[in-house]
Simulated scan of single mutants.
Amino acid sequence: MQLKPINQQVVAVVGASSGIGRVAALQFANRGAKVVVAARSQPGLESLVEEIRSLGGDATAVVADVSDFDQVTKIAQTAVDTYGRLDTWVHNAAIELYAAFAVTTPEEFKRIIEVNLLGQAYGAMAALPHIKRTGRGALIHVSSIEAKRSIPLQSAYAASKHGVDGFLEALRVELKHEKLDISVTNIMPAGINTPLFNKARTKLGVKPMPTPPIYQPSLVAKAIVEAAERPKRDVVVGDVGKVLLFLQRIAPSLVDAYLLRTGFDSQYTNEPKSENTPDNLFEPVTGYDKIEGDFSNQARSWSL
């Protein structure tokens, strides 16, 4: 399958106000793509569009909550209305809850599924008709290594990411059956240094952190941009993620034992954080519209 060069593409990046989505949008624009950026945070999108345009790029923003299908369709339609077509859809929007399953409420679990799973499905549904009209293109969905292996204290998040992997597997074969030149890629990052950990709801009593080793979001963005030009199936970002998923395939009980020993304390910082601290589970929070989180001094900008 031959996809267009990046500088000939119109790309929608959903979940672009911070972290992986923000740096991916910048990388696409730097390579010459026309970019539609979407998220719930209007200030984050406005600053991103301003940054892209100041660097000579072309970007348009759409404020949207991906749990609302009509708002997701508006993102895809904006790409077509503004630039005439849609070539690549990058779906990165996600929220997180750090809590034991026993203290997770039905409303919290439902909200994680609505954004992280249904939102991803809505994105593919909204983008596909437009991509089909161009004759070729890419659906790139950012999930997590938790699409294949769940981690304790993240049951709702892991369930949503497993669901993403499931519907992408079916969709990929259906598109091949239709003989369509549309690639479907599942990007599965390990622990990434993004502002997610500042914005996530936590019932741990402290601010959570990614399980080390931690990687910079630019590595994930690089994988996303590459998949938009050269089709890939599954991409694990972070060498520790590759090791974990390999062990999960051959000895899942060994991974259970490993996570029983290391999977709890490794997600705790020493910074107290109340359960009542504002989070972005249901509404966006301000002040975190940036690429990197608070773990830059621990994060790797490389991966084997």
Rank of each mutant, 00 (worst) to 15 (best):
P106S: 02
F101N: 02
V103T: 15
A93P: 03
L45W: 09
V37S: 06
I95T: 15
L118S: 11
A38S: 15
E46G: 01
P208K: 08
L128M: 14
F295V: 06
E108W: 00
S301P: 00
A127S: 13
G241F: 04
R31N: 14
F282W: 14
L247H: 04
T134N: 08
V63H: 10
L26Y: 03
A121M: 15
D70G: 15
I131S: 00
K203Y: 12
V285R: 10
V49Q: 05
V90E: 07
L45G: 05
K179V: 07
D239G: 06
S54Q: 14
I187D: 03
S150L: 07
A227L: 01
Q298I: 02
S150F: 10
A59V: 09
E271V: 15
T185N: 08
L3V: 07
L171F: 04
Y268G: 00
L48V: 02
K161I: 04
L128K: 10
D181W: 13
T194A: 08
L171Q: 10
G56F: 10
E292D: 12
V184H: 06
E275S: 09
I140V: 15
S303C: 03
I291L: 13
R300E: 12
N30T: 14
Q154W: 00
K176F: 06
E108T: 01
K242L: 01
L196F: 06
G123I: 02
T277E: 08
V220E: 07
L247M: 10
V37D: 08
H141D: 12
S253G: 13
Q77T: 13
H91Y: 11
L281T: 09
L86N: 06
V90M: 02
L196M: 15
G123F: 04
S218N: 08
M209S: 00
L219K: 02
L117T: 07
N186K: 06
L55Q: 14
E174I: 14
P213K: 13
Q154E: 01
N193V: 03
N193W: 04
Y258Q: 12
T269N: 03
F282Y: 14
T277S: 06
A221W: 12
Y258M: 15
G293S: 04
D289L: 02
G263S: 04
L254A: 08
V243F: 12
Q2P: 05
E51F: 06
R233N: 12
A24V: 02
D58V: 10
E50R: 08
R22H: 03
A251H: 14
M125D: 06
G57F: 10
P210N: 02
F28T: 01
I151P: 00
A38H: 05
I214Y: 07
F167Y: 12
K34S: 13
I75G: 02
I6G: 11
A61I: 07
I131W: 14
